[in-house]
Amino acid sequence: MSGDDARLIERFLEMLAAEGGAAANTLAAYRSDLDLASEQLEGGLSTADETALGKLAEAWMPLARSTVARKSAALRRFFVFLQEEGFRADDAGKALPRPSPGRPLPKVLDRADLDRLFAEVERRLAQAHPPLADIRLAALLELLYGSGLRATELVSLPRTAIASDRPFIILKGKGGRERLVPISDRARAAVARWRELLPSDQAWLFPSGKKHLSRVRLFQIVKALAAAAGVPPDRVGPHGLRHAFATHLLEGGADLRALQAMLGHADIATTQIYTHVDSRRLVELVNAKHPLVDERPARS
C-alpha cells in the first residue's frame, strides 16, 4: 500500500469514528476492504480512475453479491470523503458496481423449539445444586429471547446494568444511539440469581477471565444448549433468538414502531422484514378491525 493510501484511509476512519460514531467492528470492516482494494490496485486506490476501478470490479465478480455490495459501499464512501476533503476533484465511486445484496428473510425459531430450549434449562436448574454455568445459561437465554439484545450488547453488560426493581435498561447500540430495552420479570429473576454468585468487585455481568464473555463463546453456549435440547444447532444462535423475540412480539400485536425502538433499528425498513412471518394475522386484523367492515352495502 502506498503512503498516500495508508494516510488517507487512516484519516477517513478517524472521520467515521469522530463524526459518525462508527463502532469498532464497522471500522475494522472498512479498514479491511479499503486495505485490500489498495493492495489490488498496487497502492493506487486514492488516485484510481474509472478504468482501474473497473478492473477492481472484475476481480470481485466471483464473490457473493452481498460481499460485492459491502466492498463497493465502503469504497464509495471513501471516495466521497476524498472529494469533500479536497483530495480529489471528482467522485470516483460512481464507477463502482451497485449490486443489490437482497435481504434474506430471518430464520425464526418456532414455539416448539423455544419450549425445548427452556425445558432443557429448567431441567438443569431443577438439580439440588445446579452448576454455575447452567445458572449463567438461564440468564443469558432469558435476556436473548426476553429482551432481543444483540450478542455484543449482552456479553458486555456491566454487572450493575440490570436492577431487580427496574423493568428496563438503557443501552447504547450501533452508532452510539441510546434505546430503552424492557427486561421481563423472568429475566430479572434469572439475572439476580446469577449475580448473587459473582464477586462484588466484578465489573461484568458475564465475566470471562479478565474480560467479559466473548461473542464466539456465547455462540458456542447457545449451540450446545440446542444440541442438548434436541433442536438442530444450525437453526439456533444468539441472533436467531433476537429474531424470535421480534417475530413473536409482532405476532402478539406489538406496534412496529415500538418494536423498532426496542431492537435499536435506525430505519423502520429494517424492522419491517419481520412482517413477512405475520401476513396472515395482518390480513385477519384488517378484516376484523377496519372501520368499514360493518358498513356492508344493503341488499336490494
Score class of each variant (00 low, 15 high):
109 L>R: 06
50 E>V: 05
85 E>S: 14
114 L>P: 00
30 Y>K: 02
20 G>F: 00
108 V>H: 12
125 L>T: 02
123 R>E: 08
129 H>W: 02
68 V>T: 11
58 E>N: 00
127 Q>D: 04
73 A>S: 13
53 L>S: 01
122 E>T: 12
39 E>A: 10
12 F>T: 09
84 E>L: 11
16 L>N: 05
126 A>T: 05
103 R>F: 11
34 L>F: 09
48 A>D: 04
67 T>K: 01
89 A>E: 14
105 L>M: 14
10 E>A: 13
94 K>N: 05
104 P>E: 15
126 A>Y: 11
58 E>Y: 00
79 F>M: 02
130 P>V: 01
71 K>Q: 09
122 E>C: 07
89 A>Q: 14
111 R>D: 09
31 R>L: 10
93 G>F: 01
81 F>W: 08
34 L>P: 03
72 S>N: 03
73 A>M: 01
31 R>Y: 06
82 L>A: 02
58 E>G: 00
123 R>T: 13
7 R>G: 09
94 K>E: 10
57 A>M: 12
56 L>V: 04
48 A>R: 01
17 A>L: 12
118 F>K: 13
26 T>H: 08
102 G>D: 08
19 E>V: 11
22 A>I: 00
117 L>R: 00
83 Q>Y: 12
47 T>H: 05
12 F>G: 06
22 A>M: 04
6 A>M: 08
47 T>F: 02
